[in-house]
Design a protein around this nucleic acid. Structure first.
Lengths: 165, 165
DNA sequence: TATTGTTATACTCTATAACTATA
DNA sequence: TATAGTTATAGAGTATAACAATA
């Protein structure tokens, strides 16, 4: 009986720190992979991760997106979206337009070159990921996809301000 | 038969992109949480995430760690570890010492103040994480812990150079 | 007055390479 | 020559707040 109690106590203590352990593991895993991805994006395409993220948001929106919406989706502040879009515009990958209806608004969309560049980047990028996760069982990948979604939802519901989505 | 084939084809196609989808989900989840954590660390402790990470590595090593080892563990380049440690030294949280044996070496360790500060930070930090993951079943958290470990191992084994660990 | 973006600022992180001191 | 750190540099990301133009 004493032994069982000990086990229970230990389980409980361990259980208390599982969230922290999970977080640290997610963080180091993400850092490991994203350093590699960033390096390759830079070397092969001269792009950064935030730029890739931004372009992926625009890729499926043939009408483009307002900067405010882009800001929300990429979790980049309004002030910083401006610079991000500017750099992409300099490279000819993105254009900014002001619609007639509301002249406060700026809509960003991919140029033809931007769209083609992104398609190539995304394809290559997908190959990198498939390669890096080659040793992980496909069933586990599917499971992770669902369960990390749960973590995300939970986190979103417990932020100080419910700003995002 | 045609229907079954269609299903198989779709499954295969979907399967091909699962790795990318998982990666994007991990990335956005990590970003969501780490923005919140960084904000709180800065507001409540005047610290950054890389600083927290570095201090956590030193916390359990009462003899301190060489900068090279710190660099490896935190995945921060040698050149940048110097600045990181310098800022912590300015705050009185860390000291640098050169052992007698090999005068090329620099060992960083937490000061008493650094150790106490970190203990408080880690405790608070743990509470934040427990709170953010409150809606996730403990069993799922344990499962994630294991499975993300698998992803990390796989990624590490498929990097260009096998530099790390 | 509220909203949409832009500008300005200050700081940190990141990556790379050249350099110094020691072994 | 090789190793451990440091310095230098350049570029991006990040957060905040003040600002301009438009609604």
């Amino acid at each position: 009986m004493a032994v069982d109690l000990e086990i229970i106590v230990n389980d409980t203590q361990d259980g208390k720190k599982q969230e922290l352990r999970l977080w640290l593991r997610m963080l180091s895993t993400t850092k490991l992979i994203s350093q590699e991805i960033r390096r390759r994006l830079r070397n092969e395409f001269g792009a950064t991760l935030p730029q890739f993220d931004l372009m992926s948001q625009l890729y499926r929106e043939s009408d483009g997106l307002r900067l405010g919406e882009l800001s929300r989706r990429t979790m980049v502040t309004n002030g910083n979206i401006t610079g991000l879009v500017e750099r992409l515009e300099l490279d000819g990958l993105v254009v900014r337009e002001t619609p007639d209806g509301d002249r406060r608004v700026t809509v960003a969309k991919l140029t033809k070159k931007g769209s083609e560049t992104f398609a190539t980047m995304a394809d290559t990028h997908e190959g990198w990921l498939r390669d890096m996760m080659a040793d992980v069982d496909p069933d586990i990948i599917r499971e992770l996809l669902v369960n990390i979604g749960r973590v995300k939802t939970s986190a979103r519901n417990h932020l100080s301000a419910g700003e995002i989505d």
